[in-house]
Computed example of a mutant assay.
Amino acid sequence: MPDQPYLQLTWQDRVTGKTGHLVVDRLVRGVASGGLRMRAGCTLDEVRGLAAGMTAKEALNYDPAGRYIPLGGAKGGIDCDPRDPRAGQVLRRYLEAVRPYIETIWTMGEDLGLRQDDIDAALAEIGVESSIMAVYPLLEDPAKARRRLSDAFEVVVDGVPLDELVGGYGVAEAALAGLGGLGLEPAGSRAFVQGFGSMGGATARYLARAGVRVVGIADAVGVVANPAGLDVENLLLTRNSFGEVDRAELRHGDAQLPLRKWLDVEAEILVPAAVSYAITAENQAAVQAKLIAEAANMPVTAEAEKSLAERGVLVLPDVVVNSATNAWWWWTLYGDIEPNAESAFAKISSSIRALVASVLDRANLASSPPRAAAAALAAESFRRIEREFPTA
Results as ranks from 00 to 15, higher is better:
V287D: 15
P370C: 12
H252W: 09
L259N: 02
L316P: 01
S343I: 01
E282M: 15
A363L: 15
L377K: 09
K261E: 15
T325S: 04
S343N: 03
Q288I: 08
A296E: 00
L270Y: 05
A374L: 07
L355W: 00
A327Y: 03
A278L: 11
P258M: 07
I352S: 12
T332I: 03
K347A: 08
E342I: 12
Q288A: 13
E282H: 15
W328D: 00
A255V: 14
A302G: 03
T332E: 07
W331I: 06
V313E: 08
V287H: 14
R251T: 11
P339W: 07
A379W: 07
A296P: 00
L236T: 07
P317M: 05
A341R: 02
N322C: 12
T332W: 04
S349Q: 14
S343Q: 04
A255M: 11
V321Q: 12
I352H: 11
R353P: 06
L250M: 04
N340E: 09
K290P: 07
K261S: 15
E338N: 09
A289G: 09
G335W: 00
P317N: 05
H252S: 15
K306C: 14
A375W: 04
A366P: 01
R239L: 08
S350Y: 02
S351L: 03
D246L: 10
D254K: 05
Q256T: 14
A285Y: 04
L263D: 06
A295T: 00
V320I: 13
Q256F: 12
S323I: 00
T238Q: 05
M298F: 01
V245F: 09
A379F: 08
L308I: 10
S276R: 03
A304F: 05
A378E: 02
L263K: 11
G312K: 05
I337V: 09
K290V: 12
V313K: 09
Q288V: 05
Y334K: 10
W330D: 14
R353N: 07
A375T: 06
V245R: 07
A373K: 10
A286T: 08
W331R: 04
G335Q: 05
F242G: 11
A379T: 09
E338P: 05
D336Q: 10
R362L: 15
D264R: 10
P299N: 08
G253S: 09
R251E: 14
R311S: 06
N340I: 05
L316K: 02
A357E: 11
K290R: 12
R251Q: 13
E249I: 06
P369A: 14
A304H: 01
A255W: 12
V321H: 07
